[in-house]
Nucleic acid binder design. Structure first.
Lengths: 169, 169
DNA sequence: GCACTCATGTAATCTGTTACATGATTCT
DNA sequence: AGAATCATGTAACAGATTACATGAGTGC
């Protein structure tokens, strides 16, 4: 959140949108996490709230990062790199698929393929729409594309094997 | 946990070891989660505890899955597939790397490369050591290998670009 | 009329981690 | 002597989700 606030003053709603549009594939936050965190950061002097009245909409609470907030963010960048946290229901099911029916297994593979293809399409659309994107942001996008492509290749190999097994019967 | 108990009666300690050795790359659990979960499952009749006295070691609490536990596990396999949860500190740092020093960025890339290479080595060692592994378990291992390879290729491309930039100065 | 976007917030709950406590045995 | 393995468990806390509550405007 502090990272997003480095450039602009944003509301909780804006921050949520930023997450969704950019880093949602490797980090996300819900409103129930964002609003309390903003209040806490305000108390800690990392951000300052400015209420912006709006017509026909609720007031917008714009949060501006303070010098202390910038320091905190830069201190985070200097802190030790943490290992990624992954929790994949899909891979757990594949791991235990010996207890599943073949159609069930095929269903998971096809569902996952659709999901990964959809995110790949989204990545490519973002790449097309924002050609002057920050080069570092672009790197994470390229990572996402490479990752999705690898997954699709893996899924297609496995789905293809299923097709062959099916033929033999 | 129920998945691991489908084949054998296991202790909390054993279950932890199973996680570490097999699915830890896409799912993990700590003792503080496992022990309370086992007691809860016992209360719910999904598992049955059998205390096995041991010499020189604390008693082992072996948990055996019940019919109800098997049903619950199979019901899970029939439940809707959930999206994966990912939280990558590394990718967040890359995303915001315009606020970081070039040496900092290089440090993250190299650290991540070492980390991924280590897990790739572990995967290959597991593959070598367990040639008769369950085919579905093997699929998740192959996924892990493909994933690690893709990441190393991406990291090497980026590290290589850094080298070139460095030369120009 | 319905769904979606904009906009904020709370409360209950859940899930999970970390640290602590205990303690014998085995390996280096 | 010290570290690691085996083995279980609790308590404090952290982090986060989900659902609820409110409400106007916009697009189909």
């Amino acid at each position: 959140m502090l990272g997003f606030l480095m450039d602009d003053a944003l509301s909780g709603y804006d921050i949520k949108a930023k997450f969704e549009l950019s880093v949602s594939n490797f980090y996300n936050a819900s409103f129930g996490a964002i609003y309390p965190a903003l209040r806490k950061m305000e108390q800690d002097g990392l951000v300052e709230k400015k209420v912006v009245p709006q017509e026909g909409k609720p007031n917008k609470n714009l949060y501006q990062i303070t010098d202390s907030g910038r320091e905190t963010f830069l201190a985070y960048l200097n802190s030790p790199l943490e290992a990624a946290l992954v929790r994949s229901d899909f891979l757990i099911r594949v791991f235990f698929a010996r207890y599943a029916a073949p159609e069930q297994f095929r269903g998971w593979m096809e569902e996952e393929r659709i999901r990964v293809q959809a995110s790949l399409d989204t990545f490519r659309e973002i790449k097309r729409r924002y050609p002057s994107m920050d080069p570092f942001e672009a790197k994470t996008l390229e990572f996402g594309i490479a990752n999705a492509q690898m997954q699709i290749e893996w899924l297609d190999r496995e789905i293809d094997l299923l097709g062959k097994d099916g033929m033999e019967k």
